[in-house]
């Protein structure tokens, strides 16, 4: 029996092995993903992002519990940064995930960014395909959250929740424009703390001053206290409202199609650049070319064109 056979039988160990295979981009990972992709398409992908200390892990925990209560199968992907100097990572997001069922209805995987800078790992999107095919109704994706705008999440999720806390006031100022772009729902967490009312008001004001587009989703600002599981039902309600709105307006499908277009572009880019870089090694004395460029005998712009021409011939 192969790992994939066991995967189809719902074996958790096999799921884990498949994820590693895809994450490590082992030999036939695209072929494997191809098979899995065709069986998917049902999982709702919810992204959670926000600055450090906003309580993302806590809210992931709350949401997972709430979805489980609705008898949904829940998968989580939590991304933490890889150290650019050592290549290692300390993944601590599992720490709150105690007392979850271990019967396959809940699954949690920590991922390191492995060099990617957009808030997710390069392979996170592929892992959602695996989750989808395994039969999770909801996939929760937690970004790195280092206090900058993390755009990858738009390309991977159906809905994006931006989580803020009263203390993140300063970073909100600098991130404001980007946050407004990516948020489908704003969630002010730790709302029992001083300053949360002000933050909520500021967010609402900023949202109001944006140009009104007809029939557009009105981004709600809700407050939660994740640590006490407060107002999570409201967050779920807004998530459901948003998804219903998207589906009714045809935006859900449109958004997914945009993502797929982006996906195929990415795969092609990866493939093509892979081929070119491989070929390049074959016929060029690379060190010499670099030296030539350094000495001004040639330039990278001309050279890249020449290289491409030679490969495509």
């Amino acid at each position: 029996m192969t790992v994939l056979d066991r995967f189809y039988e719902g074996d958790i160990r096999a799921l884990s092995k498949v994820i590693s295979y895809v994450e490590n981009q082992q030999d036939r990972y695209r072929e494997l993903l191809g098979r899995l992709f065709r069986q998917g398409g049902h999982s709702l992908r919810v992204g959670l992002t926000g600055p450090p200390g906003a309580g993302k892990s806590t809210l992931v925990n709350c949401l997972a519990r709430a979805f489980l209560k609705q008898n949904k199968k829940v998968g989580v992907i939590a991304v933490d940064p890889t150290s650019p100097f050592t290549g290692g990572a300390l993944l601590g997001d599992r720490v709150r995930m105690n007392d979850f069922p271990s019967d396959g209805r809940f699954y949690f995987r920590s991922m390191a960014t492995r060099g990617a800078l957009g808030g997710l790992a390069a392979t996170t999107d592929n892992i959602t395909v695996v989750y989808d095919s395994f039969g999770f109704d909801v996939t929760l994706i937690e970004t790195v959250g280092v206090g900058q705008i993390e755009l990858d999440i738009i390309n991977t999720c159906d809905v994006v929740v931006v989580i803020l806390v009263p203390e993140s006031g300063d970073s909100v100022q600098t991130m404001k424009a980007g946050l407004m772009e990516i948020a489908d729902i704003f969630c002010v967490n730790k709302a029992d703390r001083e300053g949360s009312d002000r933050l909520i008001m500021e967010l609402r004001q900023t949202l109001d001053t944006r140009k009104k587009i007809e029939n557009a989703w009105r981004v709600p600002v809700i407050s939660t206290v994740g640590i006490q599981n407060k107002n999570i039902d409201r967050l779920i309600m807004k998530l459901e409202e948003f998804v219903a709105f998207q589906k009714e307006s045809g935006k859900f499908e449109k958004h997914r199609k945009t993502q797929l277009k982006k996906k195929i572009e990415n795969i092609l880019q990866e493939k093509i650049s892979g081929i070119i870089l491989d070929k390049m090694k074959e016929f060029a004395d690379f060190d010499k070319i670099i030296t030539d460029m350094y000495e001004g005998k040639t330039d990278p712009y001309t050279l890249a064109g020449e290289l491409f021409d030679r490969v495509s011939r």
Binding site: S16, S83, T86, G88, L90
Partner: peptide
């Protein structure tokens, strides 16, 4: 921290983990 700085991916699951919790996490994290 030392494992991380040696280039490993370290999943730290914290305190008071029961044997089933530890093994379940190890399986999920492969």
């Amino acid at each position: 921290a030392a494992f991380r700085d040696a280039g490993m991916e370290v999943i730290y699951t914290g305190l008071r983990q029961t044997p089933p919790m530890i093994v379940e996490a190890a399986i999920q994290e492969d």
